[in-house]
Amino acid sequence: MGKGKARGIWRFLRGSLLPLALVAMWWLSANRGFGTGILPGPDDLATTINRLVSSGELTGHVRISLWRIAYGFGIAAGTAVPLGIMVASLPGFGQLLLPALEFLRQIPPVAWIPVFILTLGIGEATKLAVIVYAAFFPIFMNTILGVDQIDSHYWEVAQLLQFSRWESLRELILPAATPSLITGLRLGMSNSWRALVAAEMLAAFSGLGYMIMSARSLVRMDEVFVGIAVIGLLGSLFDWGWRAIEKRLLYWRGT
């Protein structure tokens, strides 16, 4: 037990080495007169964060971005998982949908922003559309993969045990595809997070992406950097959350 903990601490320290070195270099270059002199140093950021948090600006943008992700990701997961299961289990359905989806999958969601703005306007619908688009495909593809990979041995057991459709879904398909499903959800979320920031930079008046863009136009590089740091941190947090969920749901696999 103690040994595992010590190893965990070592791993954490080793993982912190590179970020710490980068921050040190950054501090040096900002304070020792390298570069253009426009870049803020890490110490400047602390004061900026303090200011942005106490004015409620940062938290407001973060809240809006998170809300958009929650909505858009929810819609994407809610459609991509059932659709993926249907495509994987009904061959005719897949033949109908897959060519079109394969084409759409290749287009980065940001490329659709002009079209979305024209059709959906510059309100929330455009941002949601971008998030849904970005999250949909990783979830969809991994769901199909997960269902396709189910060992036919288990399907024969399901046959012998007279599983209904619903039982096949609950007792076999969903648990068997869970590893793949979680991979898809995790990728979908990080995909949509990145796409959201891009969308907010191009077509929004709120959110972290907008915060960066407006700070840029005011040449507040310290605020730009705070925005970037928060985006990276939240993205890592999502990933960490998914790993925790994965560990919980897949305890039956052991370690």
């Binding site: 041995h153 288990y154 024969e156 057991v157 007792e171 076999l172 648990p175 068997a176 869970t178 039956w252 696999r253």
Partner: peptide, 8 residues
Amino acid sequence: EPRLFPWF
């Protein structure tokens, strides 16, 4: 092979 569902 036993073919038990490993998740249950």
